[in-house]
Design a protein around this nucleic acid. Structure first.
Length: 288
DNA sequence: ACCCAGGGTCGTC
DNA sequence: GACGACCCTGGG
């Protein structure tokens, strides 16, 4: 396929580091010139920011403009979201100033499910390594600029992979979870197309929770970071627990506070933007 | 060498 | 609901 190019000018709320390193995705890597290259769907894209221009180029299955607008969530007014959240308190204001360029990507539902199953009790370098090996082993090769890239494997491409093979890729105890979840999705025990159509967040969440390896935290990440795009959920992990404890609960023994209590505070304070608030707080606490 | 933590989930009590 | 176990890797 041929290389395509697309340029956006004067975009607000768009910082490469904030987008790709806020923890929502695992397949974007920084290049020596500061740009980022990543694989999503059947596309390989490089994104570079120069002055007030954002330059996208790479191999795209369809039209690059449409692909970029959709994936980078260009239809949403992040300035407005930030304005609303900033009004809540000084903590939100500060965390938003830190992560002002965050956008929530429209990532493929299946890929997001598998990626966040892998993320359980794991660290980011290892998660990225596992996903790369998984893609290299079972995905399709795409060549660009003399380099080889690999698409994330489809459910069909993982159909005959054994638990042992997963273990060899370094998945650890998540091997069975991946195996079972892939099977459930192939058998339509959980129908991803129907999930995409269902407007009822609680119903979708319940469906996701039936998948092996998907608990409350992973389910909320899938709801927030995939094309499902539910901003009202509030994924609670160790970092968010920490930051909520420090800022809003002021409890020194972080393990004692229940999830319910944190959820209650999040809903009361952030409402239907809880997911965005979570991202700013998470990123701020982890990086700063 | 040893311990601990990492974007948790699952089975058991 | 609370607890421990779980694969593996890097850092102290």
């Amino acid at each position: 396929m041929k290389e395509q190019k697309y340029i956006l000018t004067e975009v607000k709320s768009f910082e490469l580091k904030d987008i790709f390193e806020c923890g929502q995705c695992f397949r974007w890597n920084q290049e020596e010139d500061g740009s980022y290259t990543g694989v999503f769907g059947q596309n390989v894209l490089n994104v570079k920011k120069e002055d007030n221009q954002i330059i996208f180029k790479g191999i795209c299955q369809g039209d690059i403009k449409e692909t970029v607008e959709k994936y980078f969530d260009m239809g949403r007014d992040y300035e407005k979201i930030k304005q609303q959240l900033s009004k809540i308190d000084s903590y939100m204001k500060e965390s938003i100033e830190y992560g002002k360029g965050i956008r929530i990507l429209n990532q493929d539902l299946w890929e997001t499910i598998i990626s966040f199953i892998i993320s359980a009790n794991n660290n980011i370098p290892r998660i990225k390594g596992i996903i790369e090996r998984l893609s290299k082993s079972y995905g399709k090769e795409i060549q660009w600029n003399g380099k080889k890239y690999y698409t994330f494997p489809t459910p069909e491409e993982l159909k005959d992979v054994t638990v042992e093979e997963y273990r060899k890729l370094g998945l650890g105890f998540r091997d069975i979870r991946l195996y079972e979840t892939t099977k459930m999705i192939l058998d339509k025990k959980v129908d991803l197309e129907k999930l995409e159509q269902n407007p009822n967040t609680l119903e979708v969440r319940e469906q996701l929770l039936t998948l092996s390896g998907v608990g409350p935290k992973v389910a909320d990440c899938i709801l927030l970071f995939s094309t499902l795009k539910r901003f009202e959920v509030f994924p609670i992990d160790v970092w968010v627990r920490r930051v909520m404890n420090d800022l809003y609960i002021k409890n020194h023994d972080e393990t004692k506070v229940s999830k319910k209590q944190i959820e209650k505070i999040a809903t009361e304070k952030f409402g239907n933007l809880a997911g965005m608030a979570q991202q700013y707080l998470f990123y701020w606490r982890r990086e700063a």
